[in-house]
């Protein structure tokens, strides 16, 4: 299953809810203001690193670039473009957008 989060982890509980619900082996894609969660030094870096023990974490590259943070992605998080976004949705049988 693909989980998509679009809210900043420091101002909204969507990422926490997502990480709590996501089963091992699931994929998580961070887009829009959720890309901040994938940046080194953010207070939730530890949370993301822990999640990567059994989840795959992706981040949408154009949203990172827009926010001036392309060079700060946490090691192990994969950056994808819009094409990669589409491929993730196709590769997974279902998908949950955490609003």
């Amino acid at each position: 299953m693909l989980h998509i989060v679009n809210k900043s982890p420091l101002q909204n509980g969507a990422l926490d809810s997502c990480l709590r619900m996501a089963k091992a082996g699931s994929q998580v894609l961070l887009i829009e203001d959720a890309v901040y969660a994938a940046t080194a030094g953010n207070a939730c870096e530890g949370k993301i690193r822990a999640a990567m023990q059994n989840l795959q974490v992706f981040v949408l590259g154009p949203d990172l670039a827009a926010r001036g943070l392309s060079d700060r992605v946490i090691e192990g998080v994969s950056s994808v473009d819009y094409g990669g976004f589409v491929e993730l949705t196709i590769a997974n049988p279902n998908c949950q957008s955490w609003l």
Partner: peptide
């Protein structure tokens, strides 16, 4: 303050999301 500090981050490149920088 809070996420508002991100407004001032250097190096914003918004071409990819088609929103004015």
């Amino acid at each position: 303050m809070d996420d508002g500090v991100y407004q001032l981050k250097k190096g914003q490149q918004t071409k990819g999301i088609e929103i004015k920088n």
